[in-house]
């Protein structure tokens, strides 16, 4: 009887763990097959263990160029979207003004729009304006769709901030600029960081919108897409695994840093 009772009590946890496994398994497969040495071009079946791909991660023509391009795009798009989005979020969270509801709607719409619609529309515009597709058109598109996510993240944080903290700073002789730099910005930082992180991930990972605005420029997701048609090189798995590991380590490091700082002080 005991195992049954235990199961009944922890059923939800069991399902939760299964879902977690479902989420993680593809990453494990990516990891596993990054050590594969496939016979043909298709890296679908396990053949034998090899670290070739890890030793020569840039051994595939064009892959590392596309990776560099994607990283560069992601950094620029993150900076652009974070700056614009943070300003917009402050205006929406801190002020009552005419057009606030409309602006909220404008911010909401890109998130409620399938990517394929946004990508095709922007692509049509560039095409008809005879603007050369390439790095800049991709960047414009990325900032456009990252912006709303930054606004949402920062706005939530700013709205939960106690306005009295800024008043206290003003009361303690901080000019508006000093108040912003010394109090507002440090307090809003977690929201801004979350928005920036999300922007980076979204920009780096985007395929659909990029494909409409890239012309002949090849970003990393576009490289993967192209290679999927004719057999994905093992190196793609290497990059995927490395990104996963780096991301997890960064987040863990951030967590540890945060908790150790809390303990010391």
């Amino acid at each position: 009887m005991r195992p049954i009772r235990w199961l009944r009590k922890n059923l939800v946890v069991v399902f939760g763990v299964l879902t977690l496994v479902y989420l993680i398994v593809p990453n494990l497969v990516v990891l596993l097959f990054s050590f594969n040495k496939p016979n043909g071009r298709y890296n679908y079946t396990w053949t034998r263990f090899s670290t070739d791909a890890w030793q020569h991660p840039c051994g595939v023509a064009g892959m590392c160029d596309s990776l560099t391009l994607s990283l560069k795009l992601a950094v620029y798009a993150t900076i652009g979207a974070t700056v614009l989005g943070t300003m917009t979020a402050f205006a929406l969270a801190r002020y009552r003004f005419r057009g606030r509801a409309t602006t909220n709607m404008l911010i909401f719409l890109p998130m409620a729009m399938p990517e394929v619609v946004m990508g095709a529309s922007l692509g049509t515009l560039f095409l008809n304006m005879r603007i050369q597709f390439g790095f800049w058109t991709i960047l414009i598109a990325h900032i456009m769709f990252c912006l709303s996510f930054v606004v949402v993240a920062v706005k939530a944080r700013v709205m939960s901030m106690d306005p009295r903290l800024e008043q206290a700073a003003q009361d303690l002789y901080a000019s508006p600029t000093q108040t912003f730099l010394r109090v507002t910005l440090p307090l809003a930082a977690p929201g801004i960081a979350a928005g920036a992180l999300l922007s980076f991930a979204l920009s780096f990972d985007d395929y659909i919108i990029t494909s409409f605005n890239a012309g002949n420029t090849v970003t990393f997701p576009m490289f993967v897409w192209g290679s999927a048609q004719r057999g994905t090189p093992v190196q793609v798995n290497v990059i995927g695994t490395a990104m996963f590991v780096i991301a997890v380590l960064l987040v863990l490091a951030g967590q540890l840093l945060g908790s150790s700082r809390r303990k010391v002080r």
């Binding site: 395929y207 993967v224 995927g240 991301a247």
Partner: peptide
């Protein structure tokens, strides 16, 4: 974390 591995790769 899976967010940070490319959508396509997954």
């Amino acid at each position: 974390a899976p967010f940070f591995t490319s959508f396509l790769i997954r």
